[in-house]
Amino acid sequence: MRMPGKMLPKIVGFVFKKPATVLYPKERLTPPKDLRGKMKFHKDRCISCGACARDCPSGACTMQPKSDGKKRPEFDLDFCTFCAQCAESCPKDAIEMTAEFELAHYRRGEAVVKE
């Protein structure tokens, strides 16, 4: 018979079980190792070709002049969509995605990946 609250006996046991959610800052889940998080830039491999900035869909990656006279990319994580196209476009594998995902900052412009 179809009764209101028919599933109740099946779910009432959850009261005494461990909840499915975790209290984030105290307990953490480990992200998969292939997560596309904050990128890592290997300065020594960069040839200043600008392929990353050309293909960046959100304008997060821009070529900035550096002290040695060359232009190299900077990544503004405020704009980044973590699609990793820059890493794919790079001919020298100078950009690497890491699994770091805790990217909150207090001020705009602080979350920039530089050399």
């Binding site: 959850f14 079980k17 909840p19």
Partner: peptide
């Protein structure tokens, strides 16, 4: 709390 725990939340 009980409502949350039935739903497998912390509460």
């Amino acid at each position: 709390k009980v409502y949350a725990r039935v739903q497998r939340r912390v509460g």
